[in-house]
């Protein structure tokens, strides 16, 4: 039961990442792309957490923390690059 619900949740998160991908491709401005990237990376945190439950490996949570950190840093760096003050 729990696993079925979690599978549905994973499917929905994947769908939302796919929809975000459309914005990522369409873009218009580079800031739009950065927003889409940020959203995808935060959504993947939830995905990694669910995955770590499904495979029963707690160590994936370490990966999620480091991934979140890298996503944050990447967004900040790109924002500073865009305003030409890196």
């Amino acid at each position: 039961m729990v696993n079925t619900i979690l599978e549905v949740a994973v499917a929905i998160i994947l769908l939302s990442i796919g929809l975000t991908m459309i914005r990522f491709v369409k873009g218009k401005t580079s800031v739009d792309r950065v927003i889409a990237f940020d959203m995808m990376s935060i959504a993947s945190l939830a995905l990694i957490a669910i995955l770590s439950y499904v495979t029963q490996r707690e160590i994936y949570l370490d990966v999620a923390i480091v991934y979140g950190l890298l996503g944050f840093l990447a967004v900040i760096i790109i924002a500073k690059y865009l305003e030409k003050s890196l």
Partner: peptide
Amino acid sequence: AITTLTGSLILLVASIGL
């Protein structure tokens, strides 16, 4: 599990809004 499902639905709303 239901909380997780709600969270994923909110993520879906976010991507539609985007």
